[in-house]
């Protein structure tokens, strides 16, 4: 089972490789990928360096081109595919059907993975991608329970990749327009959710307030930890009851599912967080490498160590983690 780690810049990429990643995924410095943040990602020169470093170490490089092409800019998405292939990427991660079609036609020999943003949650949808674009792998959205993943793994004609750790997207990825509804910008169109330029913090008599494009997302009392106002993780009111109506600030952590995922034959476990620091990448990669190695050495004796959980909790939103949709009770 491959350990696939995120990198938003060259230092993070080197850190991931040095700490045991089998593969790294990156994006380009434009709106062709779903982490289009200022100061993040790879221009052409850095892309080549990334490829060199990864390949010198015998590891793999996946390039995410996973937003949806704009009608007046389809060329940009095609060029991203061309560039990724030119620097020798090992896999293209794509969501847009038109971009997939382009990649499959022009570069049939370069591996194609269906991005989580394509929202592929069942066997017939997987067949669609296999039949039309001969994809090698599908990245599953974070909406399936362990039982559902197991069932798919038994029948899928292509390899499956699952999310293992990181910020928890609670909606079926690629099918969430909440961000554009509030700000005009969404992961699908711009490559960002709850973009930072719309965030405003304000100290008020009622507490510290976080706003997104002026909509009140949360209000904190002095003893509460304030988190980034991702719009699905704020406190809202439903019939006079104020609570985290959609989700609490929390991250996904599936260390305890490692034995299950191995047994199902999952091809790859993905760590979320291209927007995070090299320090985050280092700690998460190291912890997951340790856990995966431990399982492989002694599958029967595998147990999640408290120290691993603590390390990961410290890197998580709201310092707490969850199994998310993998666990039916969360649903």
């Amino acid at each position: 089972m491959e350990l696939l780690c995120p990198a938003g810049n060259l230092p993070a990429l080197k850190t991931a490789i040095d700490n045991g990643a089998d593969a790294v995924f990156i994006g380009m410095k434009d709106d062709t990928n779903a982490r289009h943040f200022a100061g993040l990602n790879f221009n052409d020169g850095k892309l080549a360096k990334a490829s060199d470093y990864v390949h010198q170490h015998g590891k793999k490089l996946h390039v995410a081109i996973n937003t949806f092409a704009h009608p007046d800019g389809e060329e940009r998405w095609r060029k991203a595919v061309d560039n990724a292939v030119a620097i020798g990427c090992d896999a293209l991660i794509i969501a847009d059907l038109g971009v997939l079609d382009y990649a499959a036609t022009k570069y049939p020999d370069v591996e194609r993975h269906v991005s989580v943003q394509a929202s592929t949650t069942n066997l017939e949808a997987i067949k669609f991608f296999k039949n039309n674009f001969d994809v090698e792998r599908v990245v599953l959205p974070r909406v399936l329970s362990v039982q559902q993943v197991r069932q798919l793994a038994k029948t899928s004609p292509v390899k499956l990749e699952v999310f293992a750790f990181g910020s928890l997207c609670i909606m079926s990825e690629g099918r969430c327009y909440l961000s554009s509804y509030m700000t005009g910008e969404s992961p699908n169109t711009v490559g960002a959710c709850s973009p930072a330029k719309y965030v405003r913090w304000q100290d008020t008599d009622q507490g510290l307030e976080s706003r997104l494009n002026n909509v009140l997302i949360d209000r904190y009392q002095p003893d509460e930890n304030a988190g980034y106002p991702t719009l699905c993780k704020g406190r809202f009111e439903v019939d006079n009851n104020v609570y985290h109506a959609l989700e609490e600030p929390t991250s996904l952590n599936t260390l305890e599912l490692i034995p299950e995922l191995y047994k199902m034959g999952i091809a790859s476990v993905k760590i979320e967080g291209r927007q995070r620091s090299p320090a985050y990448v280092e700690q998460v990669t190291k912890t997951w490498r340790m856990a995966l190695d431990r399982y492989q050495q002694q599958p029967e004796a595998y147990q999640v160590e408290d120290a691993w959980m603590q390390t990961l909790a410290n890197l998580s939103e709201g310092s707490q983690t969850t199994l998310g949709a993998y666990h039916r009770k969360w649903q």
Partner: peptide, 21 residues
């Protein structure tokens, strides 16, 4: 009312403090 997002979680059940199952 526009459909904007789909989740594994049922938010109506959550609003009544119950899991989807």
């Amino acid at each position: 009312y526009m459909p904007l997002a789909y989740s594994a979680r049922c938010f109506t059940a959550r609003s009544e403090d119950r899991p989807k199952d």
